[in-house]
Design a protein around this nucleic acid. Structure first.
Lengths: 189, 189
DNA sequence: GCCTTTGCCTAAACCCCTTAGGCAAATAAT
DNA sequence: ATTATTTGCCTAAGGGGTTTAGGCAAAGGC
């Protein structure tokens, strides 16, 4: 009987691919077992349970996103950096909808602490080096940018902006313009 | 044999309450049947299937939110209106986390068209009457506000802003300040 | 070549979803 | 008031997904 060569890493990788194909919440231990042509119970030596599997896929997606973000930010500043990072999130969500959904999986504090979450906020904060913001405004701005990226990408992917003019791409550029302007003229309390 | 008095409306209402108690994705036909002390199959005369149930809960939440929004906007303009509507979303998410999650349930075009979705964008657009924005900037601004509301509330409820200074309430006010400023000084292309 | 570890399996229990068909309560017709 | 009809909830049954316990055989260490 030839072995399938399962491992936690391979399961998580395949789970991420499966997510992109059928949606993150259709990622199931059973579906994954089918994909490896293996009995369901066999996966339980490599993954604690279904929740554990999803958590690992989420962590993978967060790392991938952080890697792309870091690459995009390298050598850029100001508006350039802002646009680059924003597009990383938006493009990733378009290319890998399942993984992007996974990245929003609610992690328990345990997993959240071990995630690339901190890298993400650091990247956003790095963008603000190109603007003149002291604390606590810097943190407010980090949170605003995070909210816009997340909110816009969610709404766009759920079809909120399709079938109506102007097209989403134009709004996206104009919103990034607006944020750039806002960061350069951040209002005093 | 005394009847339980089921109806679609009662099921949806109870489903919404259940969602707030245990989370929207824990809302299941079985759990709802238990709550009415009735056999699972009995629900299928009132609700097509699990997806239909969730869709109806989502529609309920969207209506409730729109009603609250309309009430909050009445008699307000400008920054006041902006703050009022923004707080409707944030407060609703805090008071009714399950319903709020339901409101983000991906509706099929069918259901989306029959939902209060249009009311929501109209309310946001109404806020902009207090600012001087012509199309297409008005639409860009509507989408920006929608993104911020959605993104901020999501991130906050997933714990993204807890355990770190400054506290979330302060950031929220400052972000609304910033948006108000931005809308009054919307940059030309 | 033997032994230990590891990997995948079978078996079984539990929960959720959904459909088909039946009986009885509530409601309408006579 | 009695009958006829509709409606509401039930039992039965099949199909998945999750998870644990325990077994056999393949890989790898000696």
């Amino acid at each position: 009987m030839v072995r399938a060569g399962l491992s936690t890493a391979r399961l998580v990788q395949a789970g991420a691919e499966l997510a992109d194909e059928v949606g993150f919440d259709q990622v199931t231990v059973s579906a994954l077992a089918r994909r490896f042509d293996v009995k369901v119970a066999s996966l339980y030596s490599h993954v604690k349970n279904s929740h554990d599997l999803k958590t690992r896929i989420a962590l993978l997606a967060l790392e991938e996103l952080a890697d792309r973000g870091a690459a995009a930010l390298a050598g850029r500043a100001g508006r350039d950096a802002l646009t680059a990072l924003a597009n990383v999130y938006r493009d990733y969500a378009r290319e890998h909808p399942g993984r992007y959904a996974a990245a929003q999986f609610r992690l328990d504090p345990q997993a959240a602490a071990a995630s690339a979450g901190a890298r993400h906020s650091q990247m956003t904060r790095a963008i603000l080096r190109g603007y003149d913001l002291a604390e606590p405004d810097q943190t407010h701005a980090v949170r605003l940018l995070g909210s816009v990226f997340r909110g816009y990408v969610d709404l766009e992917s759920s079809g909120g902006f399709s079938h109506s003019a102007p097209d989403s791409q134009e709004t996206w550029s104009r919103i990034l313009d607006a944020l750039d302007t806002l960061l350069r003229n951040w209002p005093a309390p």
